[in-house]
């Protein structure tokens, strides 16, 4: 009874599996909107980005204009969502976490990104330094839309896409790791798509 039964003639949404994708992923050309809550709409005049943490010598804060004046880079990356879709060659623009973190002195080993809407995600510091993570505010040449995380989101393409949290507002630098919104609810702490780390224990 609990064995699923194949449904005659049902094919499901088109799923093309490609050799160059992480295991269990399929290619999509859309950009599915995923979120488990309302879309926050923060005015740019009220937006800021902060870096805080107990080991910080001096917390740091940028207004939107100050953030815009930071050195910017263009990133081309493949993104992999834990719900199994992947999208290749997406283009983003923003500020590297290297650039942001170079402006604070600390002794932390983990970053917790916090966001509007109550989300958070955690990453080891060595996974976001060395040109591996960015705060992006532009997608395919246009300002990042609110549904996709605008004004700014994290971009950590070598991890499942939930770690690229939308609506990011700051980083907490921490001595201890602290699971984020999804990591505390059964999703894998590291979320490496190439090792198919979807859920805890994977």
């Amino acid at each position: 009874m609990s064995q699923p039964m194949v449904s005659r003639g049902f094919r499901g949404r088109q799923r093309s599996v490609e050799a160059n994708l992480p295991p269990g992923q399929y290619l999509t050309n859309d950009f599915p909107v995923l979120s488990a809550g309302p879309t926050p709409r923060t005015q740019l005049a009220k937006w800021d980005f902060t870096i805080v943490g107990t080991t910080l010598v001096q917390p740091k804060r940028w207004t939107w204009d100050e953030f815009q004046a930071l050195p910017r880079v263009t990133i081309q990356a493949d993104i992999h969502c834990v719900t199994r879709w992947s999208k290749l060659g997406t283009r983003w623009e923003g500020v590297a976490l290297d650039t942001l973190l170079a402006r604070v002195q600390h002794q932390a080993r983990f970053v917790i990104a916090y966001c509007d809407g109550g989300y958070s995600t955690n990453l080891p510091l060595n996974e976001v330094l060395g040109g591996k993570a960015w705060v992006v505010d532009s997608y395919e040449g246009a300002p990042l839309a609110p549904e996709h995380g605008g004004p700014a989101r994290l971009l950590v393409p070598h991890r499942y896409f939930w770690k690229s949290t939308k609506w990011v507002r700051g980083l907490e630098l921490s001595v201890d790791d602290r699971p984020g919104f999804w990591e505390s609810l059964g999703y894998h702490n590291d979320g490496d798509p190439w090792r198919e780390q979807r859920y805890q224990g994977d």
């Binding site: 049902f10 499901g12 799923r15």
Partner: peptide, 11 residues
């Protein structure tokens, strides 16, 4: 209602 494809995919 749950539908299943031969490859195990479900909706």
């Amino acid at each position: 209602v749950r539908l299943t494809v031969e490859d195990g995919y479900q909706a």
